[in-house]
Amino acid sequence: MSDHVELSNLTKTYTTPKGPVVIVKDFNLRIADGEFVTLIGHSGCGKSTVLSMLAGLNPITSGGIVLGSRELTGPGPDRGVVFQSPNLLPWFTALENVQLGVDQVFYTASREERRQIAEYYLTVVGLGDCLHKRPTELSQGMRQRVGIARAFALSPKMLLLDEPFGMLDSLTRFELQGVLMELWTRNHITALMVTHDVDEALYLSDRIVMMTNGPEAFVGEIMTVPWSRPRDRKSIMEHPDYYRMREELIEFLNVRAYTLKGQEPHGSHAAPPSAPAKAMSPVPSPANSSRAPDLASVA
């Protein structure tokens, strides 16, 4: 079902009152079939812009995107999108929200089958008891579960997630990361997710794409996350490499996101953008304390 994706020389220019601004320039990335990639970068660097071009909701200025063997030309249900706020339609129940897309994609199936598909995905995300509740009756976390179910229920070729857990408290965020992994493990859909949480990126990704600052942002570095799946949060956090890889990501955001663009890093960066969710691993062993070029390679 799923497919590889190729973004080549993707460029986006917005026309602003002050003239055209090139937000993203020559963004190159190939995502393998069934791979889970996260995109990190400073706020405003253009992560959502890249994702919305992939979703087909934002016109591409130049360059191109190929999904499978087809050049993308617009939005479509072959890409499931999960937004930061789940964008549920408030006049529909959870089930109707999911079924709206299912009816559209599986129009050849019977009504009963389509309802079962929607019910199945809602049950997998833990909402089996809330099928007929409206979004206003659901908590923020539950709404995002519906959003995830809605995206997966379309059996898309690709999954696009834009900071889907950004508005949730950390406990709910952990839960939903688990739900996302559970669903993704079953389907192995090619996925690109924007996040600003480096721990989340390390837990979920096969590779982490680090974007430089804007304007004219591009892919700065890519880190491969080698751990086998399914992953256990506790054991990867205790992995001897975890702390170093985390530092590497933060170091990129604090220094190389600027220097790769020829900008001055902002003052001192004593405080990392997000504190580790768990006590950091003990003193790194000497073997791991140096940068490992096999994990972080300059694109």
Binding site: A55, G56, L57, G74, P75, G76, P77, R79, V81, F83, S85, N87, L89, L100, G101, Q104, V105
Partner: peptide
């Protein structure tokens, strides 16, 4: 716009 995006992503027909 979010609601309209839902319609665009799902490729709903005009009547839908």
């Amino acid at each position: 716009q979010d609601y309209l995006n839902v319609a665009r992503v799902l490729k709903l027909s005009r009547t839908q």
